[in-house]
């Protein structure tokens, strides 16, 4: 048993090692191309080099910035990079969570209830193709250029992705499982939804949510380019001063923030769906 485990570990390790080495190779080649490109491009601000960008990244944490926590109104002093990341999260997190809850709820309801599906399907067909950023104008006139407006745009983005995850998940519930549950005493529609449809749709719902984590980062940066405070705003702010290396540093920061969230959520997903 232990021998078998050992060989398995070795096999996984060897396979992983090769993958890591290749991945590292790809990164190094990219860095080289970037470095050479930055060296040979004039004026230099067009392509900030990797070394300058890394410097700019660490500079983000060398100074402090005070930000205002929305709702509570209290001031918070953080290293500059984290301060702007926190500003983004102040509208990203509520927009994502609210959008996901509403999207999942409507998706489950429409996937489960045929009448509701009939009522709302044409409406969904019309509203769905509108890119979330197109709502910027309404976000501005309704909520102003600040956290609420940006949160609203993130909400729209999160809503649709999660809606389709849940809708597809419930539609895919096998009739054999609902039949089995009926013969085992599940009578009410709501019990069937809770005991069979929901757990059965969970993989789809979670995949939808994970996709929305990434998509909302794209949307949130887009929303901030219009003036809401946060990392996206800082990218354009830095570029206005031709501090392009700082723009790249904020781009790194977004990438890191997304990676952390994605890895974290994958771990949650794996433990929740261990039955698969």
């Amino acid at each position: 048993m232990s021998h078998q485990t050992d060989t398995m570990v070795t096999a996984i390790f060897e396979g992983d090692l090769q993958r890591y080495l290749r991945g590292l190779g790809g990164l190094l080649v990219f860095l080289l191309v970037w470095w050479v490109g930055a060296m040979t491009t004039q004026p230099s601000y067009l392509v900030p080099g990797p070394v300058d960008s890394v410097h700019a990244f660490f500079d983000l944490f060398a100074t402090s910035t005070a930000i205002v926590v929305p709702i509570f109104g209290s001031a918070l002093v953080l290293p500059t990079g984290l301060a702007h990341l926190a500003q983004t999260l102040f509208h990203y997190v509520p927009g994502l969570l609210l959008g996901a809850s509403c999207g999942i709820s409507l998706g489950l309801a429409m996937g489960w209830n045929g009448a509701l599906d009939d009522w709302l399907r044409p409406l969904v067909r019309v509203l769905r193709p509108i890119p979330p950023l197109a709502w910027v104008v309404f976000a501005i006139v309704w909520f102003g250029i600040h956290h609420t407006g940006a949160a609203f745009i993130v909400f729209v983005g999160a809503f649709w992705i999660n809606f389709y995850g849940a809708y597809g998940g419930v539609e895919g519930v096998s009739s054999e499982l609902t039949d089995a549950a009926s013969t085992l005493g599940v009578e009410r529609d709501l019990s069937m939804l809770k005991l069979v449809a929901l757990p059965s749709a969970a993989p789809h719902v979670l995949t939808g949510f994970r996709t929305s984590i990434g998509r909302c980062w794209m949307i949130v940066v887009g929303a901030e380019l219009f003036g809401a405070p946060g990392v996206g705003y800082e990218i354009i702010n830095a570029s206005n001063n031709l501090a392009m290396a700082t723009s790249v540093a904020y781009m790194f920061l977004i990438s890191l923030a997304f990676l952390c969230m994605d890895v974290g959520f994958r771990l949650v997903e794996r433990s929740v769906l261990s039955w698969r």
Partner: peptide, 27 residues
């Protein structure tokens, strides 16, 4: 309607994949 007086065993088992053996039997 279906009822607890009639139990059904399916050709392709129709077990709830998210429930353990105990969880399925207990359903």
């Amino acid at each position: 309607d279906p009822g607890l007086d009639r139990g059904l065993v399916f050709q392709e088992y129709a077990l709830f994949p998210w429930r353990t053996v105990r969880g399925n039997i207990r359903f």
